[in-house]
Nucleic acid binder design. Structure first.
Lengths: 106, 106
DNA sequence: CAGTCTATTCGCATATTTGCGATAGCGCAA
DNA sequence: TTGCGCTATCGCAAATATGCGAATAGACTG
């Protein structure tokens, strides 16, 4: 491993220690942000793989491009199942929800 | 197979032919209703398996029993990802969203 | 029987999402 | 450069979810 990689890893470690160690509420916020980002990215992928623009997908589900853009924004937290299903229906996808256990400790 | 079973099967067949055959918009409504029912049941199972009453789960996520009851109602369509995550967080579950392709025709 | 626990439903205030036009930025091709 | 397509962001109205107390009903127990 070269020096650059080493430095980067250390930086991540330092940041982690400084902001997250022993502060579960920060970790929780991070996880939620990641989850939102995840949904946003899934919508983006579904749309682009279908070869559609935001305006086109918007039209398909009866709304506008700005709405799609908002849904694909990584820091948008307001996703509803209804909206996910509308998008899924337009792109022939079923929306599956699963609760999966989180293992305690680490 | 006994007579009762036979009759029931026939009835289902008749109903299906009468209301759904060749009417995709009805099938669609049915699928959506099923999906909502599914989420409602998942919440119910998660809660009961954790041995909690609606009031207890409500308290855990900072709301009341009536709200939980509404979420567990089969014909409620207003689920948000935010609420599902709150419930998941209280019960140590991560909420996973997946778009899965629907195969055409049948 | 009364009393308790649980769940459901109603009504309404508050909070949040959605709808949508307007605007701006960016990349690209003419 | 100009024009065009695509995306991001803003602002506000409208629609919808949430918060929560009250009333109701059923099951169960004393």
């Amino acid at each position: 491993m070269n020096k650059t990689t080493k430095v980067t890893v250390d930086a991540v470690e330092i940041i982690h220690r400084r902001y997250f160690k022993g502060r579960p509420e920060r970790l929780k916020a991070l996880e939620e942000a990641r989850a939102d980002d995840d949904v946003a990215r899934k919508i983006f992928e579904l749309r682009t793989k279908a070869g559609l623009t935001q305006a086109q997908l918007g039209k398909l589900i009866g709304t506008t491009a700005s709405v799609i853009s908002r849904l694909e924004s990584a820091d948008y937290e307001g996703h509803s199942l209804a909206m996910l299903r509308r998008i899924g229906a337009a792109l022939n996808q079923r929306v599956e929800i699963k609760f999966v256990p989180i293992r305690r400790s680490a």
